[in-house]
């Protein structure tokens, strides 16, 4: 019995900040689209296509795969973390790196490195704490201020620079994740947990979201 309980405890700790399963749809049909044609926008006039149409070689050797985030730095907050791609967890939430020292970038959303979903919001999240290192780097996210510099390092070694626009702390029940992940605002959204700790269910009551936008307006 005790052995079983310890296993259960470990399971609880891993899923601790788990919010109650949400019945909200993953995204509304009316949400804006990733701008697949951001630079094109060929005016459609009486269904005749005019304007610039991108033409490129389709040769296999010319296929470009966009670089993806590999590192995140917020110098003023002394955040300097590795970033790895993540997907969905079993409950339909965002998968997170087990260690609060590492951040996860949601692969099926926007990519600071460009690609097919360029312009869709990019989301990087990390546990605010874990049982090994205690408070993680993202514990200081709520101290972010407008204008703070955020650097995303990409797998090709290049760096995309963002500036913090605002910090939002919202009850998890009220965060509109279809906008966070789905809107085509070109934002980088850094997400962690915060607010009161509900010891009964072992999760935080709020999400802390830092909204940043590209420094060069890209």
């Amino acid at each position: 019995m005790r052995t079983l309980a310890v296993v259960l405890a470990a399971t609880l700790a891993l899923s601790a900040c788990a919010a109650a399963p949400s019945s909200a749809p993953p995204s509304p049909a009316g949400a804006p689209d990733a701008p697949l044609l951001a630079e094109v926008q060929a005016p459609v006039n009486a269904r005749v296509v005019t304007g610039e149409i991108p033409v490129a070689s389709a040769a296999a050797e010319d296929l470009a795969v966009a670089p993806t985030p590999s590192g995140l730095r917020v110098p003023r907050l002394e955040i300097d973390m590795a970033v790895l791609g993540v997907g969905l967890d079993a409950d339909g939430g965002m998968e997170l790196r087990e260690s609060a020292a590492e951040a996860g970038w949601f692969r099926a959303g926007g990519n600071p490195g460009g690609g097919l979903r360029e312009g869709q919001n990019a989301v990087i999240a990390a546990h605010v704490d874990d049982g090994v290192i205690g408070r993680g780097p993202f514990a200081s996210l709520r101290e972010a201020r407008p204008g703070d510099r955020v650097e995303v390092e990409l797998t090709d070694g290049s760096v995309v620079v963002y500036q913090v626009d605002r910090v939002q702390q919202t009850s998890k029940r009220e965060v509109d994740f279809s906008v966070v992940f789905g809107a085509a605002e070109g934002a980088l959204v850094l997400v962690t947990c915060g607010g009161r700790w509900d010891a009964d269910v072992r999760h935080y009551e709020d999400n802390v979201l830092v909204w940043a936008f590209p420094e060069d307006g890209r």
Partner: peptide, 19 residues
Amino acid sequence: AMPTSVSAGTQGLAADSSG
């Protein structure tokens, strides 16, 4: 499918004081 939640803490170490 886009995530419906982000559950990003496990210990309560970064909580506001009341919790």
